[in-house]
């Protein structure tokens, strides 16, 4: 049973934390990203990368990976780890040689995904980077999947489906 002291503290805490939650919400809208600038890859590489990630997770009724700037996320990873960056540049070069920009990109990706060895490694690596990148963005996690958490709630409701009780 709650004491008066408990109830007073609940009220005070709720007020303070609700204010904090509003602040967090405000900061969410304030965080409109600045215009993205590639820091590692050259413009032609960025164009190819954007096309590649958008074929892995395309636009539907929600944004795709390129809409979510996933190619800039990968560029950042390359920028902050030179060894990784060099390998990614090499792999992108291989993809360019397969005429990804002009041939049937879906057909190429399908072949690589079912292959073994280098094509599979390169495909899987870019797929994993795209997945990490996209589902860590507002577009991928919130807009596409509906994640709306890491926020203040006074009561955790859990499963609200009667049929699962």
């Amino acid at each position: 049973m709650s004491t008066r002291r408990d109830l007073l503290q609940i009220a005070l805490t709720a007020t303070a934390t609700a204010a904090a939650a509003q602040e967090h919400h405000a900061s969410d809208t304030e965080s409109t990203p600045a215009k993205k600038v590639a820091r590692f890859f050259k413009p032609a590489e960025m164009d190819l990368l954007a096309k590649l990630v958008d074929h892995i997770i395309p636009r539907s009724d929600s944004p795709g990976a390129a809409d979510a700037n996933v190619h800039y996320y990968i560029d950042w990873l390359a920028h902050t780890n030179a060894r990784r960056g060099d390998q990614l540049r090499k792999d992108l070069g291989w993809i360019a040689k397969q005429k990804f920009n002009t041939a049937d990109p879906v057909g190429l990706l399908t072949n690589w995904s079912k292959s073994t060895g280098e094509p599979k490694r390169i495909f899987q690596n870019f797929k994993e980077l795209t997945v990490d990148g996209y589902y860590g963005t507002r577009e991928g996690l919130h807009v596409e999947l509906g994640w709306n958490a890491n926020t203040f709630v006074r009561e955790f409701k859990g499963c609200t489906h009667e049929e699962h009780a």
């Binding site: 074929h55 997770i57 395309p58 797929k127 997945v131 990490d132 589902y135 991928g140 994640w147």
Partner: peptide, 22 residues
Amino acid sequence: GAQAGVGNWAKQIEGFGLDYKK
């Protein structure tokens, strides 16, 4: 449940493209 760490499992789901996204 619906958590933020999607990459932990989504990388292991086969495929790519619209069907993969769905």
